[in-house]
Simulated scan of single mutants.
Amino acid sequence: MDHPVVLKYNRAVITAVALLLFIPGCNSQAPATTTATSTATQPPSQVTFGQLASAGQAVYASRCASCHGNAGQGAGAPPLWGANSHLSDLGNAQLLLSFTSGSMPPGASGTISRQNHIEIAAYLLLQNGWVTQTEIFNESQLSSILLR
């Protein structure tokens, strides 16, 4: 006669093994690596300057507008777009990003994330007409975007 604890244990083991064999994705023959492989071969998502600028507009409003004005016209700090803007003096978009990342806001640089600086730069580039909404953002190509 089987002992009830051993019998109960054996049934539990048999049930667990059966479930592992019949539940998709739980046995070694399931195509678990297929998903990982197919996602790895998909191209990375591309973000446009317009998408970055949308986020940048909100960051600009909360972190930059108090000094540079809601419309970039300057309000105690230089204007950032329009006829009186001197951003073109920076030369290219990479230098713009480096300048803002390293010195903005004054006395509190480092309090805005790198991603937020990229979003603000995209917003400024778009406001000045140096990029279009649909252009794909590529940080390695910022130095080729001339500020004129």
Score class of each variant (00 low, 15 high):
C64A: 03
A77I: 06
S103T: 15
A108C: 06
Q133E: 13
Q141C: 06
S103F: 14
L90H: 03
N128A: 05
R114Y: 09
A65T: 02
Y123F: 11
T37S: 05
Q73I: 02
A30S: 13
S85M: 04
G91N: 10
T134N: 15
P4V: 12
S113K: 02
T111A: 14
Y9L: 12
H3K: 13
T48L: 11
A18M: 08
M1R: 08
G72T: 01
E139R: 02
P31I: 15
G50I: 05
P24F: 05
N92E: 03
A75R: 08
A12K: 08
S98H: 10
Q133K: 05
H117N: 10
Q94L: 12
N138T: 15
F137Q: 03
A71K: 02
L19V: 07
D2H: 05
F137A: 05
S144V: 08
A12M: 10
Q127A: 01
A61K: 03
K8W: 13
Q141I: 04
I23N: 10
H3L: 15
Q29W: 07
V59T: 03
N128Q: 08
L20N: 06
P78C: 04
A122H: 01
M104S: 06
A55I: 01
S66A: 14
L19S: 04
N138E: 15
W81Q: 00
P105D: 13
G107I: 06
Q94G: 07
T132G: 05
L96R: 00
P78I: 08
C64D: 03
T37L: 09
R11C: 03
C64L: 03
T37R: 06
G56T: 00
L126V: 08
L146E: 12
S140M: 12
R148K: 11
W130H: 11
I145F: 02
N84I: 00
S140T: 12
